[in-house]
Design a protein around this nucleic acid. Structure first.
Lengths: 206, 206
DNA sequence: GTCTATACTGTGATAGAC
DNA sequence: GTCTATCACAGTATAGAC
């Protein structure tokens, strides 16, 4: 039964989460304090405990929201992936890269263990698992089968993203390597099709 | 002039750092408190300020020590690298991987921004730069030239390490992919020599 | 120079009045 | 549901004992 009261509660929760994202964007995900959040929604800090059981519960809801948002991105992407496996690979990896770089604070919460002591609950982790399941299916359809292929993919894309955030925030130094990295990966797992980028030593050398 | 007093000071600093590493190992790098450290060395928390200007200064010294230790590993490794470029690649990447996995707390301090607000000073960052310079030289000697080759290498190896720490701590799920990842990388940058691992689809398929 | 005692500020969290 | 008041604990600063 969803009556008016629970709807109002939901609205307040959303308002609190939106304020938390604002603080995270401006101050960094680790610098979020209950006072900052409360100030933005016009509450005293203890009042937040009416809506969230703890600060970790707020992080948990943010984590879940981040993965739900990206799950929506992936779901919208899938029906219109390019037919060429390599081009599709670039679209999939690029969507993750750009989603992460659009809000580094969110990406750090979702992918790194930037908040000491924070572990997502099973419910909050669920959409992340769905994203991984979809990825597994997409890779298999493109011709990359098996756990190892998935693990290698997440390592390569995740590595590019975290290098970009850590060492060239706001730039594109590792973003520019994404197409080449996908060619490298496609060659390794045996995807068909011509390379999208020239192999550096191959074309101009001997 | 290094008299007895400054030597004692140095010893105390080392003792404090060792205690800090202990806490980091047991509780996690983000859970280190001055009270914990002080307790282990038999001091009151404010006394630590005689030896370190702030908690961040302790993190800074730890960061520097971590990279100095790994620099020593790399320096000891270099004279006896295998002649085969691919085998050498595996040794270099493996040394980083194993160094990181031996103490995840140290790796998180060194590679991720796990401590909110912590930025290494230029002095502490210096050994990290030296490691990167050596890596650049080593890769070039093996036949992988240019910034892109270095950036791709750090992304791949860093990605494997962070996936391992985050998603399979204590296991070897991504560690097992290291040789194959180095073959993949070697193929991409055009290193000579036969593959160390069989290409999955190539040998048993058509 | 080195450490202690004390205190100040800010944090997440709880209890109880309204 | 929100408030005030309060707590325990964090990092930090300073004054003073030795």
């Amino acid at each position: 039964m969803i009556d008016r009261r629970t709807k109002l509660r939901e609205a307040t929760r959303r308002e609190i989460l939106e304020a938390a994202w604002e603080v995270a964007r401006e101050e960094g995900i680790g610098a979020v304090t209950l006072r900052d959040i409360a100030g933005r929604v016009g509450m005293r800090p203890p009042s937040l405990y009416t809506h969230f059981g703890s600060k970790m519960a707020i992080y948990d809801a943010m984590y879940r929201q981040g993965w739900e948002d990206y799950l929506a991105v992936v779901a919208g992407l899938e029906p219109r992936l390019p037919r060429q496996p390599r081009a599709a690979l670039v679209v999939v990896a690029g969507s993750f890269f750009d989603f992460a770089l659009a809000e580094p604070a969110r990406a750090q919460l979702m992918n790194q263990r930037l908040v000491p002591g924070f572990e997502p609950t099973a419910e909050a982790y669920a959409p992340a698992v769905q994203v991984l399941d979809r990825l597994r299916g997409t890779l298999a359809r493109l011709g990359a089968d098996g756990d190892a292929a998935v693990d290698l993919f997440t390592a390569v894309v995740g590595g590019l993203v975290s290098q970009q955030i850590a060492n060239d925030p706001g730039g594109r130094r590792w973003r520019r390597l994404l197409e080449r990295a996908m060619d490298m990966y496609a060659d390794e797992v045996g995807l068909p099709g011509p390379r999208l980028t020239p192999r550096p030593g191959g074309t101009q050398g001997a």
